[in-house]
Nucleic acid binder design. Sequence first.
DNA 1: CGTCCATTTGAGGTGGATCAACCCTAGTGG
DNA 2: CCACTAGGGTTGATCCACCTCAAATGGACG
Lengths: 230, 230
Amino acid sequence: MFTTTTSTPVLDARTARPSPASVSADPFQTIDHIGLAVTEFRYRRDEEIYGEDEPAEYVYQVRSGAVRSYKLLSDGRRQIGAFHLPGDVFGLASGEVHRLTAEAIADTRVRFVRRESLEHAAERDAGVARSLWAITAGDLRHAEDHMLLLGRKTATERVAAFLLEMDRRLASAKMLALPMSRRDIADYLGLTLETVSRTLSQLHAQGVLDFAGARHIALRNRHSLHRMNA
Amino acid sequence: MFTTTTSTPVLDARTARPSPASVSADPFQTIDHIGLAVTEFRYRRDEEIYGEDEPAEYVYQVRSGAVRSYKLLSDGRRQIGAFHLPGDVFGLASGEVHRLTAEAIADTRVRFVRRESLEHAAERDAGVARSLWAITAGDLRHAEDHMLLLGRKTATERVAAFLLEMDRRLASAKMLALPMSRRDIADYLGLTLETVSRTLSQLHAQGVLDFAGARHIALRNRHSLHRMNA
DNA sequence: CGTCCATTTGAGGTGGATCAACCCTAGTGG
DNA sequence: CCACTAGGGTTGATCCACCTCAAATGGACG
């Protein structure tokens, strides 16, 4: 309700593009009690939102679509650290630069605020400070779980964990509508896309899930997925 | 259980070097200034400091020795998320419970404060709040780097990364004095202890490092380790 | 100086990667 | 509304980095 319209923010020259920045009626849920300028922006499929080691000027929230955050090795190997789905806040670095690259998986709408204004608000309002900390702590918890998955789980356990995570986070109808490709899933789970595909086929053969096109999956037996997740 | 020596010791600059996870963000330093009760305690080798899912009552700082934080799967597979060395703060959960188990690797002295008092201090002092956030953000950054290692790096790259991390963090003399076993290293790197041992032997054969007993390693060629780390 | 466990080394096995077709389907344009 | 097609997805065959199982070695500590 305190939301104000700012001019289209200056973005990195490579990622900047004309787009109508519409006024949002409701600010980020975590900071909704303070009057910060919140702006909207759209990114097309595969468009970069920010790059690793770029100054962290903005903090984002997904409104629709999906985002992947990843790190690359020099030879192109990629590790996706997290998928950001509608409602998720991302790009909140406590430091000066982003530690991962963020890209739109599909056409995506985001809202964002300047990191600086959030930090100023946190200096004045302990509740805001607590919120920022809680978001980072939530990301850390996810990363800790994911380290266990990447370091110690089998391919089947990883895929089961992925399906359960998406089921929990996308929980729309009975059908999971996955926005990401098999390659994205593989790079999230530390596998190859072939292994992801084979494992999903195997789960289908076991009657654990049904397909309605490769990216629409219905979980038929969550209990056995939980058992598989070790 | 907590028969302790109450004290408000001045942080020793030698033993409390800034941890990579919390550069210039030491709540214990702040606490010394605002006069919170800080207590010391000693744990023996392999003793548990806190368990996964236990209420997070205290926040700790290593004074001497070393600590491992890990998660277990039901069949005993273990993933160590981090090693905590002198100066490091650990056990700082923003939530109500610990997400990992912490154990002393060797005989270890720690200081601790009640999480509650830190959080109360954070409500009054934005600097403390910033410190707590910065520590969690540092842990997150470490976890993000470690996900890349666990998901995408080869055995040689992992071992090289481990050696460089330890070199940076416990660089005392020219010799690394590793407090942890090959099994601990393996569970940190998502490998088996045999693979860690073989890889170290190989690096020794290549003249990259020298041994003075299995746990005392001198890096002879940091440049080639950096190259190996991809 | 002997014992015990951590570590090293060896030999063989395997889960997932790689290389290679082929298939499907969502999106496009007619 | 249908036909076409490119790119995502599936499946098959083979390979290999790392794991597993096994045994020898060594170094820390009494």
